[in-house]
Design a protein around this nucleic acid. Sequence first.
RNA 1: GCGCCCGUAGCUCAAUUGGAUAGAGCAUCAGCCUUCUAAGCUGAGGGUUGGAGGUUCGAGUCCUCCCGGGCGCGCCA
Length: 582
Amino acid sequence: MKKEIQKLICQSIEAAKLVTPDELSDIQIEISRTKNPDYGQFSCNIALRLSKKLGLNALDLAHQITDNIKNQEGLEKVEAVPPGFINFFLSEDMKAEVVKQVLQQGAKYGSQTTQEPKNIILEFVSSNPTGPLHVGHGRQAAYGDSLAKLLRKAGHQVYTEYYVNDSGRQMNILALSVLIKILNLKGASLTLPRISYQGSYLEQIAKEIQNSTEVNIDNLLEQGGLRDSYPSCSADEEIDKLIADFQHQLGIENFDRLTDSVSSLMVTSIKKDLEQFGVVYNNWFSEREMIKKGLVQKSIQQLNDNNLTYKKGGALWLKTTNFGDDKDRVVIREDGRSTYFASDIAYHFDKRFRGFDLLLDVLGSDHHGYLARLGAGLAAMNEPQESLEISLVQFVSLFKENKKVQMSTRSGEFITLSELCEEVGKDAARFFYVSRSHDQHLDFNLDLAKSKNNENPVYYIQYAHARIHRVLEELKNNGLTFDKQSGIDNLVKLSTQHETEIITKLSDYPSVIKQSAKKKSVHSLANYLVELAQHVHSYYNAHRFIVDNLELRNARLALITATSFVINDGLSILGVSAPKKM
RNA sequence: GCGCCCGUAGCUCAAUUGGAUAGAGCAUCAGCCUUCUAAGCUGAGGGUUGGAGGUUCGAGUCCUCCCGGGCGCGCCA
């Protein structure tokens, strides 16, 4: 419809000879939906935009344009109003057309076919497997998964991936923490070092691993002489010394096998939590395997070959400042180990190598410095910097009894995602997470979400869906059937204010998909669904659907059936179920 | 100090990227179940959009400066 109106305006401007054809093709004619029905359904601000350029009064200009718009099928009237808007009023049969479309297209209604479908790889959560996911990760999971679905609906190809950071010092610290717990289970009295991981999950892993035949721990106890601290060292030095001790005493291969086991148990558990949350990835990408394949080395070689590295202070630096970064970055440390950043370059280069044209990363807001750095890294690998896009998700603050809950992975004091799922349910949690703009801080009120009350908007939407299905059920119980064709044929009979509003709302769905995909703002869809549900409830209270008049009945049933399709589709993008009964 | 994000009703947040009268939910108040689910509906009150300038037909949205908050600024991950 928008396109047709655009065309009308275009033709009219041409007919009035206001501008030359060349100028006309440069002008972007924006058609927008109106908020207020007094202004019709669509409006155009072209007269306001052109008035200065043409030196004409905007309202006069608007009149000139409308004068040249002939009676057009589907339009009831076209109006020019101060200060210069042009408003379009759709005719009744045109309005009802959308209901027919929804019924015919079903789940495909609202799907976009973009002119340039992108082949996108979407990376999200990618939390280090050093502990269970907590409520902060939950937001990224909910946002990322919904974003993937939304972008697909908008016509893109989306491949989702979790980058498993299963290499490096953090994993060794985790292995050490678990090892100490295992030794505790076997009777040794060792305590966790100052900066090791904490939390009950360590004991669970310890229990699962303690009898593993792959890692022989018993002779460690027989050896004796185990120590768990270096009081005179800093906490950082201490833990590195302890890791070195145990690597020596256990044998490096044994220690690595332990790390492997711990890591894979952690990943399995994270995967399970996410599945429970309705989030399933196309792929899990292991950093360790990437390193084993030599991809990091290869990337560094490439950077060297491009003459973009230099040695300083024993380390190898990458000239990221050549590509807009604040400062150069280290890729190989003085001690010869490659940095996290080096892995990231290799990983993102690999994404390009696999053929994706847009690398979309969902990261916590504390990573905002990464765009410049990673983009520079890609550029240094001869890849376009613009192929990387980062969506930052702001923090979640958890509130319990009106007090902010402090959380820290290290101290082991956090509420996990799976605990949240158990307590408030997947649907409520997922909806709550995406109902706010991702670049806005989110206050998650646990008590509110926990208490099974009706304050959660997700119930409001689900209830609207369930009510519609209850009506259809009732129809059957009364021995009646819904005649879809008759409904479509009689859509013109839907002329109450409630019906007009709900129809208009349904017609917004495709552009909501398009816009929120473009802006990557999943919350717009969530808001839309609340508004749609609002209309359903008002309609439900104001009118009966199962009425004696057969034609009106079918028309109304057609409308609510179409509405339930859209609610169902929208909720599925958000990863929320649409129950038929509540 | 430098960089990024943000400040909207008592609280939590929207606002079709510059559009017309700034909207929802919760909370408060007043109504609505003999009829398809009251997890619902109808109505009321509640605002100098942190502040001050500027840009233009038009600003919550853009530019500058203040005030206030969050997060970054490692050979950590």
